[in-house]
Amino acid sequence: MAGLQRLTPHLARLEAEAIGILREGACAFRRPVLLYSIGKDSSVLLHLALKAFFPGKPPFPLLHIDTTWKFREMISFRDATAKRLGLELLVHTNAEGLARAINPITSGSALHTQVMKTEALRQALDMHGFDAAFGGARRDEEKSRAKERIFSFRGPGHIWEPRLQRPELLSLFNTRIHPGESMRIFPLSNWTEFDVWDYIAAENIPVVPLYFAAARPVVRRSGGWIMVDDERLPLEDGETPETKMVRFRTLGCYPLSGAIESMATTLPEIITEMRAARRSEREGRLIDHDGEASMERKKREGYF
């Protein structure tokens, strides 16, 4: 009862919708998995999965695609979370990409994303035989995502064909697939960035501390602050890390994630700051700027 009163009618509705979608995915598919990327959206998704199957546990494992370039704090948060909740966590890295020394710095963000994220994800899904994967993507993030279904059909090879999407009426999801085909499922489709933070605050959901402002070593690049998270980040001529109060709106591979200067060290402060923000969260993600329609291309190839 207390839980319900914590939420506005709007958030309660979003929560119920997401729980219904999680249950549907778990029932309708042979071997589902939850793609856990450690960020705030994944934290919300995981929290909802715990609620959806209560008093049981989510009937699927978590999968993290580790590019080896995530923030160290993300990895420790990931392992602590799986342990705390007693959930099965699968971690997959593209060994071939690692052997080829693909990295976000010298390989470029496009190739790095292609090999270490998209291909790695396809490998992991195929290796474990997952036929459905939950993800925390939201339609308000990006314009090709705005067009995607909640139950998003993928053909053989995990291909997304945006022109052949199945009509999705009410919550009458068409969950039928053939062997070799799969489904990506997005329970947070109708959530906005505001909703995610409001919900995190209302439900007191743990998130990676990188979302809160702290003094961190950073360098200025492409108009954003890049954190020097370990010794692998080569400094350019004349570049010296400086300590700034910064936080992250989105988290990914650290050399590709731009921080913003901020003094917001608490959830209410983050929410207040965000309401005044005039720039979108994905701006901090360098991979979206690889070219027009780049997200759509990546998604067609199997990216989340």
Binding site: D140, E142, K143, S144, A146, P162, R163, S189, N190, A293
Partner: peptide, 28 residues
Amino acid sequence: LLDGLEAERQQGITIDVAYRYFATPCRS
């Protein structure tokens, strides 16, 4: 802003539903 698919932008038409989200103080 809304015609987010490449085919839509090239043809200048809307092919698929796009969902957008906004709020005012009294309604989402």
